[in-house]
Structure formats: C-alpha cells, structure tokens
Write a protein that binds this DNA or RNA. Structure first.
Lengths: 163, 163
DNA sequence: ATCAGTCAAGAACGATCGTTCCTCAACGGT
DNA sequence: ACCGTTGAGGAACGATCGTTCTTGACTGAT
C-alpha cells in the first residue's frame, strides 16, 4: 500500500555519516542533507524524525559497524607508530566522525553516550597501551582537518567566510 | 578624547579564548560573548570588527602565548605516557581551543593557518617522537569532551537539545 | 563650560536555520 | 478500475543568528 520509497535507508544513513564526518553538526544544514543524500525533506523527517535523529542514526551506525573494524585492526598493532599509520590509512573520511561527535558531546547527552561506547570498544581492543588509539584517531582529525582547508577541491572555492 | 573603555582588551581576548575552547565556533553566539565577557555588543564590533574577528584574535593570542608554554614543557618529556599526563594536567580548559580550531579549519583558511602554526611549533619542540604531542592534545579533547556532558554543572541542566 | 568622541543599552534588520504544511503524482491491495 | 496510502516537490513559518542603527550618558581636551 502506498508508493514505495525511492531510497535505501541504510545507504542514506551511511552517506549521512560521511557528511557529518566532514563538518561539525551545525555546519551541516538540512538543505545540505537533502541535496547530497537525494532524500527529500519530507521523507527525511518522516523517516528519522529530525536532523538530530538522522545524525544519531548515522553516529550509531558508525559506532556499531566501523569502530569494531577499527578496533579489530588495532588489536594486532604493536607500537604507537604502527597504530598511527593504521588509523591514517583506514578510511580517512569516515573516521573523523568520532572527533566531530566528541566536539558535540558536551551539549548532547545521547551523543556523549555513543562517543563513550566507541572509546570503550577501542579501550577494550588495545588493552595495554591504553591512550594510544584515541590519540591517533584524534590526532588524524587535527592534522588532516588542518590541511583540509587547502585540499577541499570543488566544494567551497573561497574561504574566510563572512558568517 | 571620548569616554574611556570600561574593559581590558587583552583580558577580553583571553576570556573569549576560554569560551571558544568550551564549545564549537557556531556554538558560541554573540549574545553569549556579550553576556560572559562584559563587553557590549557595540564595543565588540567596534574593537574586533566581527564575531570571527574576535575569534581569530583569541586563537592567535592562544597560539602565540600558550602553545609556546606547552611546547616548552613537551621539550622536557621522555615518553608518550609522560606527555599524556603533562597535557592532561595543563590548563584543561584552554587546550581544547586547538581541537576546536582544527574542527573549523576546513572551512576557514585563516583558522587553518593558525592551527598549522601551532602544530609546527609543537613539532619543532618534540623533534624525535613526532606524532605524540598533537595526539595527546587531541586525545584530551575527545576524552574530556566526551565526559563533559555529565560534569557541566550549572551551565545547561537538561540536554538532548531539540535544536 | 563646551564640545567632540567614545561607550552603554537595546531595538531592529535581513539571512538562515530546523521544521511544518499543502498539493500533486505514483504505486499496491481489493 | 478504483481508492487509500505514501513519497516528491516546494512554499511557508517561527526562531535565532550575526550585524547595524538609534538614542542617550559619560569623559577628556580645549
């Protein structure tokens, strides 16, 4: 009954994770989501309730499906140098989501819960040299984000925004 | 000539750095600045030109005055464990500014410049075990921000914001 | 004492945000 | 073939954002 939806919900969540990983939460507008995800405004609110709902869905999907993979790799790592290289090589785009989520955690309890879940998984994975993996993940954020201003190709040509 | 200003510009910049370290750039409204800094809207725009002008002033002050101190301490550090403890003990509030700035760097060239300046200073300071200090700094951001949701005492009682 | 120049206080503006509403087209079950 | 339900499309709303403007009080140099 009714017209079938023209998008795959799981794929939308995954794409949303990519978008939210690239900018801060407030930096992604609903118009951005509608444009880049191919889902219409109405369907977005019907399916996820709100922008925050979609964000939480994306974050939870990320923590559930990606952090585990990262943790498994980290389990086989021996020193800091190697851990750094590992996280660096892993999907450079998506792993920013943890950093971006951490930035939002202070003002959103449910986000804080997910971030802590991710940190717990990573902690459990690396055991002995505790602080390293979060550090590497976060380090990559700072490093790569810092030089992203130059790279960002066709996205936004000019910078130094007025806003 | 004219009424003397009722605030100390340097102190305002320093306080602003503290505010911008606590939340993302977009998370700090001009009303917040006016309220917490004791500077009136008009004076703020007269002195700093814009919200972004004040932010850049605060970020530059931070990079110029605080990163050097941090780098000097890191110069005397021997291993990762010690570096982590060091950055952890250092002014827990202000050091978030680098992480927050990194988050903004992709969309603001001048911010990216300052972040890279800071990273260069830190790189130069630690020399041999390169990646460590940025990692520790960033690590603290993720860790502490994640649990900040619980701590944040009188600020915002409820969370899970509608916005 | 006067006056130019700044600060203080707050109203007001346009833009943009997240969200809702309305209308029409597209499909599945009977 | 028809009807009920859902998605697509887009206009519209209230709130909030950064910024500007208006008005009046205060101060230091002439």
């Amino acid at each position: 009954m009714g017209r079938p939806r023209g998008f795959d919900e799981a794929e939308v969540v995954r794409s949303a994770a990519g978008l939210f990983a690239g900018r801060v939460y407030d930096g992604v507008s609903v118009d951005d989501l509608v444009t880049h995800l191919g889902v219409h405004r109405n369907s977005l609110y019907k399916t996820f309730g709100s922008k925050r709902g979609l964000y939480l869905a994306a974050l939870r999907w990320y923590v559930e499906h990606e952090i585990g993979v990262l943790a498994a790799s980290l389990r086989r790592v021996r020193d800091f140098e190697e851990a750094t290289r590992l996280v660096s090589d892993a999907g450079a785009g998506l792993d920013f989501l943890l950093l971006a989520a951490a930035e939002r955690a202070p003002v959103d309890d449910e986000v804080a819960v997910e971030v802590n879940r991710a940190l717990d998984v990573i902690d459990e994975a690396v055991g002995t040299f505790t602080a390293v993996p979060q550090a590497t993940a976060a380090l990559l954020g700072v490093r790569l984000r810092a030089k992203a201003g130059a790279d960002r190709a066709g996205a936004s040509p000019g910078s130094s925004p007025t806003r």
